[in-house]
Design a protein around this nucleic acid. Structure first.
Lengths: 330, 330
DNA sequence: ATTATACCTGTAAACGCTTCCATTTCTCAA
DNA sequence: TTGAGAAATGGAAGCGTTTACAGGTATAAT
């Protein structure tokens, strides 16, 4: 590995001049620049990032914390983030926590040690206090999921409104017994909002919620299947299912098929996320698209502002528009 | 931000001692350690990573280059990598190129500037020469896909053998007209091997390949659909489809359904990847599982050896075992 | 000819940490 | 009592950059 000194020596200039050439600084004569460039090429010189970054205020790295990469729901969000990053000379560090607090803390050290300039929290296991503490000292933005009463800004959609209108549509079509299929109500704000909207919409029309009180259920397909099975045992009158994710909706669908029901003739399904799963299964699923790309893009856009202006710490609570895709399942 | 000097001053020790405490070095008396720890706590001191890393040989960061995160096929690979990383105090930088050479080069600079210690190439657009050059100077390992005649090591599976035995099973079941649905044969080694095996297996039984000569086709669902449509027009006698990915197989499935065919009664499908898609659609797909987790895990394990021992540069060509999941589609 | 200005270049001081080496102090065996 | 070895600590030299500052030269204006 050659260093800037060797380049300077070979080009017969000072290291300052080499640095100027590397950073496209003006005030370097064409001939000198030429000489330096030649020396760089001859030595195959690559500036050492650590040396440079030690002197600079920022590293240009952003940390994304999410549960795992295997949920296609996150894909457009990450794409939006990356698109903005790409256009703004930033790099993105995607780190998966699998809901493990150790891993999360491990990665948060990257923020605290100034390895990264800011944090995009797509999912987290932090308490409100922890997040506040973090937000006080470092640029942090929550994406999609958020802690409602926390000081940290977030970009999300109005899950309540989306869920409410979805349920009302079902009711208008004559459904009375609508089940709520979810992955635990405890922590996640999106699920909470959906549940609240579901209850409110039913109450408005004097209907009763049908829901299983689960303690700890997994996300995903299997979970949708088992909950459907359980609920149908107790409430055979159910004609519609509200799934909090379309992967769960896939589980519902398969369980219904196995039990001999037709969708949407016998039972309807509505869901969230509008991932590729929605259109991969038969029938296609009615699903809410949260416009993850925009969510990701704008989150980083705002985070960048926070990074560049320490004084700019206003809490932002942004709800972007969503789109309901009505398909065959309802 | 407080620095190590301030901590040293407050604790009335030298910076050397503070550094020893931070790095859990021995040879620090309990009382001194206590004092330093107190000072650290009082100042909320966080060591600056850049300062430390400038002095150290390695950063503990690994770069993963892949096309995009929205293919569930990559998920277990990444998980395997992360699992090893986690257990070995390394960090993983997941970067998506979307097949864009600019983005790729941008990220490769992280390697060249020693921001990361090594590179795991899951997909790439590099030529063999470029990769050789890279491999000569930095620790690089290819995962799943690889350039066969390159100097860089790789961990993959024997796609040829897997494909060959799949096709033979179809032939044994009486299929004669077997179509090959792919996303372009040009670059990707896995597709090339599959195609070669497909042809060889057919030839062995005196059968003719059925394939569309495409120039530039997209991966994925849509592509599977259109190719199926085209091929069936010309070759209505086709009774089985070999899909190079299970997402394409999903496209085939839907196209067949739309045309009124039943799977597997009228037509059979076999595919690769064994992602969640394989079991999400009806009927479930016969698919080859490449054991991505092991592939990822062992790749990083080997990469780590290369990082720690510059002299260790033997080319490794590793084929791990795969599993064929026979399901309803064939 | 003189001065002001713009442009180019170099010197050297950071940036925040680790670690080699030297020094001091302490413990224990001879 | 002495000396050797171990343990604890500090001094200071880097690691490879960037950049403030200063100096030097050429050009243009007076």
């Amino acid at each position: 590995m050659s260093t800037i000194d060797e380049v300077a020596f070979l080009a017969k200039v000072s290291v300052a001049t080499v640095s100027r050439v590397i950073n496209n600084n003006t005030n370097v004569s064409p001939e000198t620049k030429e000489r330096v460039l030649n020396a760089i090429a001859r030595l195959k010189y690559q500036p050492n990032a650590m040396g440079a970054l030690l002197r600079k205020e920022h590293t240009g790295m952003i940390l994304i914390l999410l549960h795992s990469v295997d949920n296609p729901f996150f894909s457009p969000i990450v794409q939006g983030i990356e698109y903005f990053a790409q256009s703004n000379g930033m790099n993105v560090l995607i780190c998966t926590t699998y809901g493990d607090k150790n891993r999360e803390n491990h990665y948060l050290d990257l923020l605290k040690s100034h390895f990264v300039d800011g944090l995009l929290l797509i999912t987290n296991t932090l308490t409100c206090e922890e997040l506040n503490e973090l937000n006080r000292n470092y640029p942090v933005v929550q994406v999609v999921e958020y802690l409602p009463d926390c000081d940290a800004s977030y970009f999300s959609i109005d899950f309540y409104q989306a869920a409410f209108s979805l349920v009302e549509r079902l009711i208008e079509k004559g459904h009375h017994d609508i089940a709520f299929i979810h992955a635990g109500l405890a922590d996640i704000v999106s699920t909470k909002k959906k549940y609240q909207a579901y209850c409110d919409a039913l109450k408005k029309h004097n209907l009763e919620p049908i829901i299983e009180d689960i303690s700890e259920h997994a996300f995903g397909y299997e979970s949708g299947r088992t909950m459907t099975r359980e609920l149908l045992k107790e409430h055979p009158s159910i004609t519609a299912f509200f799934a909090t994710s379309d992967l769960m909706a896939c589980g519902i669908l398969d369980e219904l098929r196995d039990q001999g029901f037709k969708v949407p003739q016998d039972k309807s399904i509505i869901s969230f996320d509008n991932t590729i799963f929605s259109t991969l299964v038969q029938p296609n699923l009615t699903s809410v698209d949260v416009n993850g790309f925009q969510l990701g893009y704008q989150s980083l856009e705002y985070l960048k502002k926070r990074i560049n202006d320490k004084k700019f710490t206003d809490k932002l609570e942004v709800f972007l528009p969503y789109v309901i895709h009505e398909r065959e399942s309802s």
